[in-house]
Design a protein around this nucleic acid. Structure first.
Lengths: 341, 341
DNA sequence: TTCTAAATCGAAAACGTTTTCGAAATCACC
DNA sequence: GGTGATTTCGAAAACGTTTTCGATTTAGAA
């Protein structure tokens, strides 16, 4: 409980607080000899600046806030790891909050972060949010925001995303090129744009290859925490459309539910029905057959989001104009067993 | 960029900063009428206190730090979710740092958190740390620390753990009671106590049931990020000891590697060799056969760790004596397919 | 009306830094 | 020894709050 502060060093040395502060911060108007004495004394007294006081004086906290909509799992784990690594590298601390897909939560948490004077915030939007004034408020107050993954096009800030529609288009095109003809889609709920985009990619790929889109082959899986949805809808679709030969699933989670059911029901994957996932979560290599999927680079997403944010923080500090970037990270197909006969 | 502060409200109302502050904080020496005026003006000017200034004055940040040794995955995801939920509930923010199993990192990060004036810190030790002076320093400086999962008995602070030895003992006893006779153990590396304790539990269970412990049946799996270790050692043990009938694995991850190999090599699980995991990670229900395992309550661990920490913070603030608690969370066997014939 | 008690307010210090600006001391040079 | 330039230091203000303590006003009682 013996926190040493500037004044302790100063009085130990019989000099002023100002001189101590300057010596420690490398000001040039302090003689080498007193600087040396100060540094040594600071060392022996185990001095560490009180960050709160520094923050108040300098008006920056070297801290960024992160708001994620869901629990820390799967995709968001990767993003978080990317965020933590890059933030550490750049000397920033990170505060994490989860909105549980609630707009009110998200709004409250963003306000809290601003009140805490974080230097910037990273966020992935909740499914509920269709009003973005809280974000615009933050930006107007000079707290830069960068959106990742679940973004809103209408907000004027930097964003880092993948192209869900294109990734889905590629996935379905891959299936078509492999010779699959009757391809179903297990989509996500109707609200998040990612879910919509992946569905659109699916639809466009069919049309681009001259296959008629059949809405009856689209099933909704809106449970994001378990694979039961995939399991049950797989059962359902094999009753209603036993002649399908492939399913493009919105996530690896539902893909795994599908494969689980197929394995239990004796339906051969990929021989009778191929399965294509999305995200390349760890468990996609655990299941048998191993899952063909889209690699969604969560770690890189976290990395670049932090990088952009910290650059913007620096620009704002130097009163430079900040130019917002929209970064679209590349995805790629990871071909495994569930689609190759 | 128009942050309103106390003085703005004060001058708008023609009163002093003191009165505004008191009115907002519910001091009783402010008349109802001015209080009402202040509150209304604060509302319309959208006042939010500057947390940094408040922190400096009150000497508390309502923030806790968390240091985890590994990447945010599997078990630590659950813990983190528990931490985030409980912290939010109690009005605390959380800063997360990862030490990557490096003692020097851990030490540096703890110092950083103290410098940032967090009110307390939660940590799970790195494999390298066998010197605990940094933790004792923190505690001596009145920053309470509570250790979880990977702890050090010698540090005088609260801890929340599971009983690894007992859990392992239960697991192996379960196998013995099921009739398995030649039970191997795929242990973790030699350094973390958890790994040692689980090994000891294994050994004691054998001895308690009159089965001779054979060190040749113990294999080391020290890769925590992939299941290759389990896979390769499974291959090895089936060459060297083809007559084993069960394996107790240190984590679900290596258990899954084992099952993967067994599935590919045509070795029937559990008929020829049963497999028992540890932790009850999500993927243990993904694999076929589904994995019998020990439920390690990560979410509850995060919850109670935060709860204890915040209680200690309150005690310290009120200069009450703090009594450290050692909480041992119960584990239980989750019986699935990999051990029932 | 006067005196006391209660109600209401504000000046100022404090939290621990950083930074501006001026003062003092030293130096170089003639 | 005097001048100006340079080096070295420190007083003080500032960041935005909270809180103590004293001052002033008001109400109540006699």
């Amino acid at each position: 409980m013996n926190d040493t502060k500037l004044i302790d060093i100063a009085s130990a040395l019989g000099i002023s607080v100002t001189t101590v502060s300057k010596a420690l911060k490398g000001y040039t108007d302090i003689s080498k000899s007193t600087r040396a004495k100060v540094i040594e004394m600071a060392e022996t007294m185990n001095y560490m600046p009180n960050s709160v006081a520094v923050n108040l004086r300098t008006n920056e906290t070297k801290t960024i806030g992160v708001i994620i909509p869901a629990t820390v799992h799967h995709f968001f784990s990767s993003v978080l790891n990317g965020i933590l690594e890059e933030a550490e590298k750049r000397g920033y601390l990170v505060i994490i909050l989860q909105s549980n897909e609630k707009y009110e939560m998200e709004k409250k948490q963003l306000a809290l972060l601003i009140q805490k004077r974080v230097d910037g915030v990273l966020m992935s939007l909740s499914n509920e949010t269709d009003d973005f004034s809280h974000i615009n408020d933050a930006i107007r107050k000079n707290t830069p925001v960068v959106l990742f993954d679940k973004i809103a096009k209408r907000v004027d800030c930097s964003k880092v995303v993948i192209n869900d529609a294109k990734a889905a288009f590629d996935a379905v095109s891959y299936l078509i090129n492999k010779g699959y003809k009757k391809i179903a889609h297990f989509r996500g709920s109707y609200v998040p744009q990612n879910s919509i985009d992946r569905f659109l990619g699916y639809k466009r790929a069919l049309e681009a290859h001259g296959i008629e889109y059949d809405p009856k082959l689209v099933y909704v899986c809106d449970n994001n925490t378990d694979f039961e949805d995939g399991y049950e809808n797989a059962q359902k679709i094999m009753n209603e459309h036993p002649d399908i030969d492939a399913i493009f699933a919105i996530t690896d989670l539902v893909a795994i539910g599908i494969i689980k059911y197929f394995n239990e029901a004796g339906i051969k994957t990929p021989d009778q029905v191929a399965v294509f996932g999305f995200s390349n979560w760890f468990m996609s290599t655990v299941i048998s057959p191993k899952l063909t999927t889209i690699d969604q680079p969560g770690f890189e997403m976290g990395h670049t989001a932090v990088s952009i944010l910290i650059d913007e923080i620096a620009d704002i500090k130097e009163h430079k104009p900040v130019t917002h970037q929209i970064i679209e990270l590349p995805t790629r197909i990871i071909e495994r067993e569930s689609t190759v006969k």
